[in-house]
Design a protein around this nucleic acid. Structure first.
Lengths: 157, 157
DNA sequence: TAGAAAATCACCCTAAAGTATGAAGCCAAA
DNA sequence: TTTGGCTTCATACTTTAGGGTGATTTTCTA
């Protein structure tokens, strides 16, 4: 059911209907006393009344049932996407290079510095340098914090 | 607009309306020829026709506009729940104690062993022991792996 | 209440992580 | 072409993490 604004419209329509009905009756009475309908052509008179008031009834009903349209909100719950979207803006903002990100990803997988070095065909010292820079840029002190931070920043899944 | 079933109802109503109108006219004609209304009490006659056909019109309109209700589906995207449900079964299965879980949580927050020890008012060695046991139970070799594993097992958020 | 499990702590040692500094090669942009 | 950023590597050092063993105390349970 719609709000209370319906009552105003409803009353308005009823009043208008009443006024229109009164005018119509007066008109008919006037017509009766004049030329068209006196005693004959009674069927035409009754028929016209029937037609007019039917139309009036339909109009009234339509007017009253105007806000009849019912909006049914159906909530559709969406699954959490689980699709990782890489936050490139953060990477740019923190000035993290591609190689550093690569090291970060392997670090987040639990690999040791030596394992990362072997995997990337570079020396252990190189990895240490990368990681040291990453800690600066991510403003952390330990690799566990780095992983936590970079996950929060959507740099890694 | 709803489906084609509306048309059947519509036609049905129109036919019924027509039949009812015809019957009513015959009834009025019959009444006219009999006792009540002959020449006088004309207003009652016209008024009753008006009322009857108004009601009829309203009824007809309501009947026709019955399937006017519109269903609107509104998709509501929910925030990803983020509600962490602790996996107690895994904790029991891996035989992880409360204290160990506590240490695990602090470890996942990036705290060092010394920081954890200070926070829990115990010695560094105690924390080392807890963590060593955790590594055994989680079957990992490093704390980064431990955090990753325990997140996968829903032991920590 | 005795025994098991959990929690605590210590000592020693090695491995890994992290810090600091310096430097060389490469490559794209000014 | 030169400058600056990226990548690479090295050396030296400190700190932290991790492994192994043993022991004491507390807490819970059969």
């Amino acid at each position: 059911m719609p709000g209370s604004t319906n009552f105003l419209t409803k009353n308005k329509s009823v009043i208008l209907y009443g006024i229109f009905l009164a005018i119509l009756l007066l008109l008919l009475k006037w017509l009766e006393l004049r030329f068209i309908i006196i005693n004959h052509a009674f069927e035409i008179y009754a028929g016209s009344i029937a037609v007019i008031f039917t139309v009036l009834g339909i109009w009234l009903a339509l007017k009253l049932t105007k806000p009849k349209t019912i909006l049914i909100e159906k909530e559709v719950f969406t699954e959490k996407p689980e699709t990782f979207v890489f936050n490139e803006k953060e990477m740019i903002r923190l000035n993290i290079s591609k190689r550093e990100l690569e090291v970060l990803q392997l670090m987040s997988e639990g690999l040791s510095n030596q394992e990362i070095a072997t995997k990337l065909f570079v020396s252990l010292n190189t990895i240490k340098t990368h990681i040291a820079r990453l800690f600066e840029k991510l403003e952390v002190k330990r690799r566990t914090q780095a992983v936590e931070m970079s996950k929060k920043l959507s740099l890694i899944p």
